[in-house]
Nucleic acid binder design. Structure first.
Length: 492
RNA sequence: CGGGAGGUAGUUCAGCCCGGUUAGAAUACGUGGUUUGGGACCACGGGGUCGCUGGUUCGAAUCCAGUCCUCCCGACCA
């Protein structure tokens, strides 16, 4: 007994919290809005990070690291961006504490140690990076600059949720500088494709690539692209964004370069990021009432082996076989744990590893050894079957691939079943309340209409899908002419 | 930041309204034994500054004030 998960149906929010806490991805901390990422959760992040990092490097990007603090004067240089983040910035005003003369053993902020200029804890790093790039760029020969950084950022959120919205989170932020507009635009789209590739092929998370409306656009960007995912409660979640920044930051930070004709021009820029929020997406897209379901390709642990025995002789016979299996799986690069902890019985272990979403469980006992088989159970379907020990490792490898595919297709099927067209306002509202998911509807393209729809329905335009089908219609809200449907949803 | 709920053993909670032995239960943990194919059982044992600070009182987990953290709803949020 012990860890029981609230069912998804009963209380979706509590179900999510239970998965994160009881699946040991993260823990609450003594700091408001900040969480501790536990080893199991961090291992997942490391796997995600490693896969993405390789993809970045394969497309010519390099890693660097920029400071956590941004002087206020730099931060405010690009006005739109600064304004967009102003309300959620942590600010460092002092650099020293001292003993409290009125309370022994307590510390107070030393009023003598006030900073001349406040430091902003980065909510994103465009400002410090573009201030730096200014010194690195003189000619087109210095371009492009294709830098990524893995870092933490702080956004002081009023209401937080584990992984989905926390005051501090981990992410990667790419910041590139280019000699031409088309090149920068191509970069923003290249990374968008890379993100979608990662989400779908590694996280088994189907996403829709699209463009954000002006209201949802990144402050300081000319165009924001995104990948949007669908959760099992019918709410959308932005899984990643890339921004074509135009020359906004170059102008704000005066970053110019000489082109081949020795003409001065401002540099073209992009930025892009995905964060630990993706872990929240992973949890909500795949898991069930028994716990997490990890896609094999990024699972912290792909296979667990649980021994079943009645005597010491059986135990050592089982262990011998199990260790053989461990070796054969490791030889194929599969991560595997042989859990021979004698304190927990098999049933307990089964439940525990299901909770943590380990894709494949192998149970092996005396009965199996006699028949030269093991019991293989897959987490995604809960199916169990006897599999011959001959060539087991390859079978497991295939099974892991199959699970990866199955999880993806299951999520895709859900997503496809939750894109619904609405052609009048009443249907639109009913669909949001009764079914959820993406609502494909006509919109007249105005920010005002978008605001009104949001105020009434709580749904936002998630994106205008790339390669969207053109279709004449009437705006769902105003009845004004529209040339295409956009995707609305309530979102995280 | 507004409304609501909560914080007592590692965990889940009871006790609080109506202040008064040594603060309980289940589960987890330790030891020994029996067990082991879906969250085992018996015996013994260890474990708590009752979130924190202050106040009222002879006496506070219990009453009062402040404060911190968490959850839910709302506002806010590229």
């Amino acid at each position: 007994m012990g860890k029981v998960i609230t069912s998804m149906k009963e209380d979706y929010a509590q179900w999510y919290n239970d998965l994160v806490i009881k699946g040991e991805l993260a823990d609450y901390s003594a700091v408001r809005g900040c969480m501790v990422i536990k080893p199991y959760g961090y291992a997942l992040w490391e796997n995600m990070r490693d896969a993405l990092d390789k993809m970045f490097k394969d497309t010519g990007h390099v890693n660097a690291y920029f400071p956590l603090f941004v002087p206020k004067s730099l931060f405010e240089a690009e006005e739109a961006n600064a304004e967009g983040f102003a309300k959620e910035c942590a600010v460092v005003t002092h650099y020293r504490l001292k003993s409290d003369p009125d309370a022994k053993g307590k510390l107070i902020v030393d009023p003598e140690a006030k900073l001349e200029e406040e430091l902003i804890v980065r909510p994103t790093s465009e400002a410090i990076i573009w201030n730096t790039y200014k010194g690195w760029i003189q000619s087109y020969r210095d371009l492009p600059i294709l830098i990524n950084q893995w870092s933490n950022v702080v956004r002081w959120e009023m209401r937080t949720r584990l992984f989905l919205r926390t005051a501090e989170f981990l992410w990667q932020e790419g910041h590139t500088a280019h000699a031409s507009k088309p090149e920068a635009e191509a970069e923003a789209k290249l990374i968008l494709d890379l993100y979608a590739d990662f989400a779908e092929n590694w996280m088994a998370l189907p996403v829709i690539k699209g463009i954000k409306s002006a209201n949802e656009r990144f402050a300081g960007a000319e165009e924001t692209y995104c990948i949007e995912a669908m959760m099992q409660d019918g709410k959308a979640l932005q899984a990643g964004t890339t921004h074509f920044l135009g020359q906004n930051f170059a102008k704000a930070f005066d970053v110019k370069f000489s082109d081949r004709d020795n003409k001065l021009d401002y540099v073209w820029a992009t930025s892009w990021g995905v964060s630990t929020r993706l872990i929240g997406a992973l949890v909500m897209a795949h898991s069930d009432d028994d716990g997490l379901i990890m896609p094999p390709k990024i699972a912290p642990l792909q296979v667990v082996i649980v021994p079943v025995y009645k005597s010491d002789e059986q135990r050592s016979a089982v262990s011998e076989k199990a260790n053989e299996i461990v070796r054969s799986l490791k030889a194929l690069g599969i991560s595997v744990k042989y859990d021979d902890n004698d304190n927990a019985r098999p049933g307990w272990k089964f439940a525990e590893y299901e909770m943590k979403g380990v894709p494949v469980r192998i149970a092996i006992g005396a009965r199996d050894i006699e028949k030269n088989v093991v019991e293989v159970a897959r987490r995604d379907t809960k199916e169990k079957k006897a599999v011959s020990m001959d060539g087991l490792a390859v079978q497991i490898q295939n099974l892991l691939n199959e699970i990866q595919q199955n999880i993806y297709h299951k999520a895709l099927q859900y997503r496809e079943a939750h894109i619904t067209k609405a052609d009048n306002w009443e249907d639109f509202l009913n669909l949001l309340d009764d079914k959820g998911g993406f609502i494909a509807a006509h919109w007249d393209g105005s920010a005002e209409t978008e605001e009104n729809i949001k105020d009434i329905s709580k749904a936002t335009i998630r994106c205008i899908p790339l390669n969207n089908e053109k279709e004449e219609g009437r705006c769902i809200f105003t009845g004004n002419p529209s040339s295409q449907r956009v995707l609305f949803a309530r979102a995280y």
